[in-house]
Write a protein that binds this DNA or RNA. Structure first.
Lengths: 207, 207
DNA sequence: CCGTTTTTGTAACGATCAATACATAAATAT
DNA sequence: ATATTTATGTATTGATCGTTACAAAAACGG
């Protein structure tokens, strides 16, 4: 698919690798906090190369969040889809979150949750992108819960919307918790609390 | 207490009012996102007056967070302390949070939670201050729960630490939720979910 | 070979950042 | 009235922000 005959001087750096580096910088510093100087230093290129390859800081960030969603979010969201029951889906989803947010060699917390919470620059383009992705996450939770209701695992009057909002909010809170340096055990304690809520929400009618 | 005989030209603006304005700007924009220009414009003063009265941007932010904690946090934390039972304390604490985070005429979400999540500038002074305040919040929850155990409301093996971490994390998540434009009803849905967790955590042994 | 195309490094752009110099203004103290 | 002290407004500091001109370099097609 990438068999475009190369015209002109070939690029001397690995675009995908540079994007990964940029993603990590945005992950640690956020959109506003990551300067072009820091980005180019981490990417191992000069600013003209950055602009030639990615267009602008905004466009680079959007590509970085796309990469983040595709790579870093895989374990979390595949856990949600592959689990046999809705209950296990939520629990594995949260446990994967706890694990992903406390990896030793990676920034703590989520790029999507923490990347740009203050709508200042770029007139909201960046914020809107992240907000949309956060909304999609809640929707994925909602779909999984609705699937559980359809399969009969959950009572027909189970409030999927409330539950989806709740678990998405817990995940967001875990990002701040992780950014504060919380241990994996502390994050898993939050998971324990959240799953206690599941017991009460789903088990009330089942009991 | 403020009877210091005034020497020199008296200040022509209300320092407390200016600080309130600064707090609101930091609340909306965060520490990094709030520029001196925006601050002085909102405060109705020029930058030399800002530096003469507050010292620096960092010092101004620290005073703003102190004011925020004292004024905006009162309802939330007094609800925690004044409620007759631990259960009601947590519920009113969360309901006050939902209310405070979705006020029409105020920025949504919490300054302490969202003010500076990326440790870039100021070598962490700002981040450390907010982190400390977040830790104090969790401690306040912990103390209230321990008090509930001491009063016999909760089983002696109730895991206060896990519960405190959980509810603090839910509150942090609600800040992001509120920043995303969630309605008060949506925030209260999260409260409902969190209180379901309470039912399972505290009621398991009580039932 | 020459011309075209694209990348690279250097160097700079105007704008904005946080923070101040400086002279003037307005109060008190003697 | 004079000296002292503090606040104010204007203007500016050096640094850094995101972005781009520009020319040399390295690939191509002819």
């Amino acid at each position: 698919m990438d068999a475009m005959p190369e015209r002109g001087r070939p690029r001397t750096f690995d675009r995908a690798a540079a994007l990964r580096r940029a993603m990590e910088v945005f992950w640690v510093k956020g959109y506003e906090g990551a300067s072009i100087s820091e980005l180019t230093a981490a990417m191992g290129i000069n600013s003209p190369s950055l602009y030639a390859a990615f267009g602008s800081k905004e466009a680079l960030f959007l590509e970085a969040t796309e990469l983040y969603t595709r790579v870093e979010g895989t374990d979390i969201w595949s856990a949600l889809e592959k689990a046999p029951t809705a209950c296990q889906a939520i629990e594995r989803f949260l446990r994967q979150t706890a694990k992903a947010y406390s990896q030793k060699d990676r920034p703590h917390g989520c790029l999507i949750a923490l990347g740009a919470l203050h709508e200042d620059s770029s007139r909201g383009v960046i914020c809107d992108d992240l907000r949309r992705r956060r909304a999609e996450n809640r929707t994925a939770l909602l779909r999984r819960l609705e699937h559980g209701v359809a399969k009969g695992e959950l009572p027909t009057d189970f409030d999927c919307g409330t539950a989806a909002t709740f678990f998405a909010t817990v995940q967001h809170g875990m990002s701040i918790q992780a950014r504060d340096g919380a241990s994996r055990a502390a994050l898993l304690a939050t998971v324990t609390g959240a799953m206690a809520a599941w017991k009460a929400m789903a088990g009330a009618d089942a009991a």
